[in-house]
Lab assay of single mutants.
Amino acid sequence: QIFVKTLMGKTITLEVELSDTIDNVKAKIQDKEGIPPDQQRLIFAGKQLEDGRTLSDYNIQKESTLHLVL
């Protein structure tokens, strides 16, 4: 699992595989929060994550926290 922190300070827990693409992750956030993926920007280690890449491409591990910017 990974964590996604919103600017409102809310933390969302997502069940993911490290082979999941950023697209997949955004879809899971949409399922939980109702935010359309095209409005989501995910940040990790100061970098904006690109849709076609996977979590492992960015060296994101289990229990990592991503930041969601709208």
Rank of each mutant, 00 (worst) to 15 (best):
Q1D: 02
Q1S: 06
Q1K: 13
I2D: 00
I2F: 02
I2K: 00
F3I: 14
F3M: 02
F3Y: 10
F3L: 06
V4A: 02
V4W: 01
K5Y: 12
K5G: 14
T6P: 06
L7E: 15
G9E: 14
G9P: 13
G9Y: 04
K10D: 09
T11L: 14
T11Y: 06
T11C: 08
T11K: 14
I12W: 07
I12G: 01
I12V: 08
I12L: 12
I12D: 03
I12E: 02
T13F: 11
T13Q: 07
L14I: 05
L14G: 00
L14C: 09
L14V: 07
E15P: 08
E15V: 09
E15S: 08
V16R: 01
V16E: 01
V16L: 03
E17D: 08
E17G: 05
L18Y: 05
L18A: 04
L18T: 03
S19F: 04
S19Y: 09
D20Y: 10
D20M: 06
D20S: 10
T21L: 03
T21S: 03
I22N: 02
I22W: 01
I22L: 07
D23M: 08
N24Y: 06
K26P: 00
A27I: 07
A27M: 02
A27E: 14
K28W: 10
K28N: 09
K28C: 12
I29K: 00
I29P: 00
I29F: 05
Q30D: 05
Q30C: 05
Q30W: 05
Q30I: 11
Q30T: 04
Q30A: 11
D31Q: 07
D31L: 07
D31V: 08
K32G: 13
K32L: 12
E33W: 01
G34M: 06
G34N: 10
G34A: 09
I35Y: 08
I35D: 14
I35W: 05
P37T: 13
P37F: 13
P37Y: 10
D38A: 07
D38S: 03
D38W: 02
Q39P: 12
Q39S: 04
Q39Y: 04
Q39M: 04
Q40M: 04
Q40G: 11
Q40D: 03
Q40T: 08
L42P: 00
I43T: 15
F44Y: 02
F44K: 07
F44V: 02
F44T: 06
A45T: 09
A45R: 14
A45Q: 11
G46N: 12
G46H: 08
Q48E: 14
Q48I: 03
L49W: 01
L49V: 13
L49S: 00
E50Y: 10
E50V: 11
D51M: 02
G52S: 09
G52Q: 10
G52K: 02
R53A: 10
R53I: 13
R53K: 05
R53Y: 03
T54F: 12
L55T: 01
L55V: 03
S56P: 07
S56Q: 06
S56H: 02
S56Y: 01
D57H: 13
D57C: 09
D57I: 12
D57A: 11
Y58I: 11
Y58W: 09
N59C: 10
N59V: 11
N59T: 13
Q61N: 10
Q61R: 06
K62N: 10
K62L: 11
E63N: 10
S64W: 06
S64Q: 11
S64F: 10
S64I: 05
S64T: 08
T65M: 12
T65K: 10
L66E: 14
L66G: 01
L68V: 01
V69W: 02
V69E: 15
L70K: 01
L70C: 14
